[in-house]
Simulated assay, not measured.
Amino acid sequence: MEIILLESFDKLGKIGDVVKVKDGFARNFLLPQKKALRANKTNKEYYEKIKNDLEENNKKLVEDANSISEKLKKVDTIFLRQASETGQLYGSVTPKDISNFLSKKNINVLPSNINLTTPIKNIGIFEIIVKLHADVIVNITINVATSEEKALEQKKEKLEKKKNSSDFSIENLESSDKDIQKKEAKKNNKSNVKITGEKKIKIKDSTKETDKEK
């Protein structure tokens, strides 16, 4: 079915786009939720009338999403859970748990916005994608530990690994630059040798020509 989007959707399209979707998706979700219109002549004309209002509303949604995104970047999302010696949790951390945690920090994020297909069931630090809007996506770090001290240790280890990885990359880059410079220097030396040789040959040739003329 062809529809006109009244909202922006990640991987589907932006407001006003005419896209093809499965009939079931349109009938069961997009159309009843007033997130889209059937793409016919009447609805296309209607869309042009409400276009400015939709775009203004979307602009406000993007601003709100960006505001939430900035707040998320400043929050330490720590979950304390009991776990076995192997690090397996006696329980789990779900999108709903994360949403409730953030709500207590006055940050409203729906569980459906949290891209976590399976619950977290182990101790550790996890990078999670949060889709606040089709145009606003942010990564958050979930720190799952058995105590505040362990959570702090995990965070320090993560930062240390990141730092070492960054230093390693810089060293590789510098080493690569030096190798390139050496190769360029060798090329230049070879070029100079060839040019010098050519000059000598020309001099000899010109001498021979002079001898012949004599």
Rank of each mutant, 00 (worst) to 15 (best):
K44L: 15
L89T: 02
K183Q: 14
L173V: 02
F168T: 05
K104H: 11
N43V: 05
T117I: 09
I195S: 13
N189L: 15
K44P: 00
L37H: 03
N52G: 04
I125V: 14
A65Q: 07
E213D: 12
L89S: 02
P111M: 07
A151P: 01
G124Q: 10
K162Q: 12
V18R: 12
F168K: 13
I195T: 13
N28A: 08
L116K: 03
K44H: 09
I137F: 04
L173W: 07
T77K: 08
D211C: 07
L152P: 00
K35Q: 14
P95W: 01
F9D: 02
I68A: 06
K131M: 01
E45W: 04
K204T: 12
T146Y: 00
N28V: 07
T86P: 02
L102N: 00
G197F: 08
K34Y: 11
E7D: 13
S67G: 05
I195E: 15
Q181W: 02
S176N: 12
D97M: 04
K74N: 06
T141V: 08
V75T: 10
K155F: 08
Q88H: 09
E184Y: 07
F79R: 02
I140M: 09
N164M: 10
K208R: 14
L116Q: 01
T141C: 04
V138W: 02
K155Q: 10
D76N: 14
E2A: 05
I128V: 15
K59F: 10
L102S: 03
N143I: 11
K194A: 14
Y90G: 03
N172C: 10
K212F: 09
N52K: 13
A39M: 07
F29T: 08
R38A: 06
K51R: 14
T77W: 04
P119G: 06
A145H: 00
K11E: 11
S147P: 06
T207R: 12
E148C: 01
K212I: 15
P32W: 09
K34W: 06
N172H: 04
L89I: 03
N108Y: 12
S147G: 08
K35L: 14
K34D: 10
N188S: 10
K41E: 15
S99W: 04
A39Y: 05
D179A: 12
K194Y: 11
N66I: 01
K214S: 11
E55T: 05
P119F: 09
F79A: 06
V109G: 00
K74V: 03
N139Y: 12
A145K: 00
V144C: 02
N66S: 02
E70I: 03
S92F: 02
F29P: 00
S69E: 10
A185S: 09
P111A: 04
E149I: 09
N52H: 08
S67L: 06
L30E: 01
I78Q: 01
L80E: 10
F79D: 03
I170R: 13
S69H: 03
I201N: 13
D64P: 00
K208S: 09
S176R: 11
L54G: 07
K71P: 01
G87D: 02
N188I: 15
R27Y: 11
D211S: 12
N43C: 07
T196D: 12
I114A: 08
K41G: 03
Y47A: 03
S147A: 03
V75N: 04
I125S: 06
K199L: 13
A26L: 04
E148P: 02
K202G: 15
L61D: 11
K199M: 11
I203K: 14
S176E: 15
E149Q: 07
G87T: 06
